[in-house]
Simulated assay, not measured.
Amino acid sequence: MRHVLTVVLAIWLALPVRAEEALRLAVPEVLESAGFAGYLVPRFALKTGVRITRVGEAEAAEMRLTTDAPVVFGGLGQSWGLVHQDDPRAQRFAEWLRSEIGRKTIESFKAPDGSVFVAVKARAVAPVALEYDGDRIAGERLSLALCGRCHVVNETNRMDGMGATPSFAVLRALGDWDDRFATFHLRNPHPSFTQIADVTDPFDPTLPPPIVPLEMTQADLEAILAYVSGIPPADLGAPLHLQ
């Protein structure tokens, strides 16, 4: 009997863990064709690890961008809001849209025709709880391989980083370290040589990267965030105020 139970337990442990299904977000065609939804959603996923699948506005979905809801942002001549079911992940997306980084993301988008969006600031926003579920071991390996040519990641490459770039430990000591890592591809000089699959636009053929391109996936960045979250922050003494 004990042998049978052992075999059953071994089989159960070997079964693949079913990944949590992605939330569906119904997107009006005007927002989809402008590229706004495709710009916004991956950046939320990188920040939080919550997976979202965009579907048409007439399809079944747990969340829906619509003009018939409290306003979250304005764009394309209309005011837009989000309605959602009682899923904690959907609530998290709603809170992120009104958070500082969410508003910055909304307002950093520019459509091909030059259209821009304006975010609405909420009176009070509960902080978005962040979790880093990426593979930390892979995150360390990726950090050294992709970031280590400029930044000191840890003792492994402490003699290889560039003096003008802060180490990971110094960045980890900053109050907004997670924002800096999650949006590093938007911060100079990274846009000129960074490609994140399904997030960044292809390089302009007339402006080739100045160095060997840094190519990665969203899962790679999530792993790096998970790794950095466990790095002991450097002792910087008095708080730093960096621009």
Rank of each mutant, 00 (worst) to 15 (best):
G49F: 12
G49Y: 06
V50L: 04
I52W: 02
I52R: 04
R54N: 11
V55R: 13
G56N: 10
E57F: 07
E57T: 07
E59C: 08
E59I: 04
A60I: 02
A60C: 01
A60V: 01
A60G: 09
A61M: 02
A61D: 04
E62I: 03
M63W: 03
R64P: 00
L65W: 01
L65N: 00
L65C: 00
T66A: 00
T67G: 09
D68I: 02
D68A: 09
P70L: 07
V72R: 07
G74A: 05
G74R: 13
L76F: 04
G77A: 12
Q78S: 14
S79Y: 06
S79D: 12
S79I: 01
W80V: 01
W80A: 00
W80I: 00
W80H: 00
L82D: 00
L82F: 01
V83N: 01
H84A: 07
H84I: 04
Q85K: 09
D86A: 15
D86M: 12
D86N: 14
D87M: 09
D87C: 05
D87R: 09
P88N: 08
P88T: 13
R89E: 09
A90C: 15
Q91I: 04
Q91K: 11
R92N: 03
F93C: 06
A94L: 05
E95V: 04
E95I: 02
W96I: 04
L97S: 01
E100N: 10
G102I: 06
T105L: 02
I106Q: 05
I106G: 02
I106S: 03
I106V: 15
S108Q: 04
S108E: 06
S108H: 04
F109C: 03
K110L: 10
K110I: 05
K110Q: 12
P112C: 11
P112V: 13
P112F: 12
D113W: 15
G114K: 10
G114S: 06
S115Q: 13
V116L: 05
V116M: 10
F117P: 00
V118A: 13
V120C: 06
V120G: 00
K121G: 08
A122S: 13
A122I: 04
A122R: 13
A122M: 05
R123Y: 08
R123F: 05
R123W: 12
A124Y: 15
A124Q: 15
A124H: 10
P127I: 12
V128Y: 05
A129W: 01
A129R: 08
L130D: 03
E131K: 14
E131Q: 11
D133T: 15
D133F: 09
D135R: 14
R136S: 15
R136K: 15
I137Q: 15
A138C: 08
A138N: 11
R141C: 07
R141V: 08
S143K: 08
S143E: 09
A145H: 08
G148N: 11
C150M: 12
